[in-house]
Simulated assay, not measured.
Amino acid sequence: MTKKIMALLVVCLAFVATSSFAAQDVAVSMHQMAKSYRSVMKDETLKSVTADLAKLHAAAIEARDGVPDFLQGKPADDPKRQLFRDGMNRFLKQVELAQEYAKEGDLNKAKEAAAKLDNLHHYYHKKLGV
């Protein structure tokens, strides 16, 4: 009986710890996204834009695949969780568009596409109330 209780306690603690780390990971990823976005907008070379867009893309994938703290405990089909995921997917598509322009060698179009990320950021933060 004691072993069962201990095993259950360990599983519960692991779940709580994983949930806390997942929320922290999303916050860290969001911070990295903001940092990379600012870098992209300051970059003056195609090489630096390409590198910073890659960092932005990686951080956005990490954020999309996590659950932010304000959505912890909500079911997967919760409208706000769906809105978060939809917003992250739109954000990623816009990053990928900017990356495509960068691959084509068009620095100005890459930065114009990246500039639209700020509108997405504000729109979804407002819709989600964060």
Rank of each mutant, 00 (worst) to 15 (best):
V28Q: 08
A54W: 01
Q32G: 04
N89C: 04
V95K: 01
P75G: 00
R81F: 05
M41A: 04
G73I: 00
F70Q: 04
I61H: 05
N89R: 10
L97A: 13
A110V: 03
G105A: 09
T50A: 13
G105D: 06
A110E: 01
N119Q: 15
E100V: 12
A76M: 12
E44Q: 12
A34Q: 15
T45R: 07
K127H: 02
L92S: 03
A27S: 10
A59Y: 07
A113H: 05
R81C: 08
S39W: 06
Q72V: 12
G66L: 10
K47V: 13
A76I: 13
Q94F: 07
N108L: 13
E112M: 07
M33S: 05
V49N: 03
A59Q: 05
R81P: 00
L46D: 05
K109Y: 12
K127A: 10
S39Y: 10
V40L: 06
E104M: 15
Y124L: 05
D25N: 15
K126V: 09
L92N: 02
K126P: 03
L120M: 05
G129T: 09
S29R: 00
F70D: 07
K80C: 02
M41D: 07
A54C: 08
A63H: 01
L56N: 00
S39P: 02
H122Q: 14
A76D: 14
N108G: 06
K103S: 06
H57P: 02
R38L: 08
